[in-house]
């Protein structure tokens, strides 16, 4: 039957996602401070801060600790001559097969944070769908992009 795809994405992805989590946390923190001020100056109801605090704690547990961990451990991929095999998702697990002959083009992209961690996101487009592998090591991504575009033969005109 189906074996899991062999390769994992870069371990630095974990760090990156935690950084995203921290940024989110900071935004929530700012809102909380605003809320506190509102309660203090305009007598907004107290329970609002309780909700705010709960969200803050949830943010720490989920966005910084749990979600990046689960996401990273689920993400697997494998690229062979014949097809691209992806597995991802925390609660909804998706396993996708894309035959190499269907691939129309491959892109890599890199935002400022990704660049800082020397990571790169690769997106593989067919005529109808786009598939992304996030946060690969940038050399690995570059290599992968070249090998995929070499393997994906000239797209047949009749898609």
């Amino acid at each position: 039957m189906l074996n899991e795809p062999a390769r994992r994405i870069s371990e630095r992805a974990l760090t990156l996602w935690r950084v995203y989590g921290i940024i989110q946390f900071l935004v929530v923190l700012l809102i909380n401070i605003g809320l506190l001020a509102a309660v203090y100056f305009w007598n907004w109801p107290m329970w609002l801060t309780a909700i705010g605090a709960a969200v803050l704690v949830g943010e720490v547990v989920l966005s910084i600790w749990l979600i990046p961990k689960l996401r990273w451990s689920r993400w697997r991929y494998e690229v062979t001559e014949k097809d691209i095999d992806l597995q991802y998702g925390i609660f909804f697990i998706t396993r996708t097969l894309v035959p190499m002959v269907r691939v129309q083009h491959v892109d890599t992209e890199q935002g400022p944070l990704l660049r800082k961690y020397r990571l790169s996101t690769i997106s593989i487009s067919t005529a109808a769908t786009v598939h992304k592998i996030p946060a690969l090591d940038e050399y690995e991504a570059e290599e992968l992009r070249q090998s995929i575009s070499a393997l994906a033969r000239v797209a047949e005109e009749d898609v």
Partner: peptide, 22 residues
């Protein structure tokens, strides 16, 4: 163009899964 197998964690436990093709 592409085929996927979709499962939630709960479905995985009871050996169920969905198919999606594009």
């Amino acid at each position: 163009q592409a085929a996927s197998l979709m499962q939630t964690v709960l479905q995985q436990r009871v050996q169920l899964g969905g198919v999606r093709v594009s």
